[in-house]
């Protein structure tokens, strides 16, 4: 599973599953020294790993750059549906 910060490119090369954020290059997990943001990205990617039902899914997370507040994910939710 992949994080994507270049949606069209991810789509073109055929990644099995990806979560997309429209963020600057070099920041696939977000800002430095922002662990809650980074862990949220990991959580959402792992959730897609468990739940994606078909190849090529690109989930747009819709997180705005530097305009969101993040909290520690509830990791107990990571169970395969």
């Amino acid at each position: 599973m992949s994080i994507s910060i270049a949606r069209d490119l991810t789509d073109a090369v055929g990644v099995p599953r990806a979560v997309f954020v429209k963020w600057p290059l070099g920041h696939p997990l977000g800002e430095p020294c922002a662990p809650l943001q980074q862990r949220t990205m990991i959580f959402r990617a792992l959730r897609l790993l468990l739940n994606a039902g078909q190849p090529g899914v690109i989930e747009d997370l819709g997180f705005r750059w530097r305009r969101e507040r993040y909290s520690e994910p509830d990791w107990s939710q990571l169970k395969q549906e």
Binding site: A6, R7, D8, L9, T10, A12, V13
Partner: peptide, 9 residues
């Protein structure tokens, strides 16, 4: 970056 991604795609 998205414009670049579209061209690279």
């Amino acid at each position: 970056a998205q414009f670049w991604a579209s061209r690279a795609a």
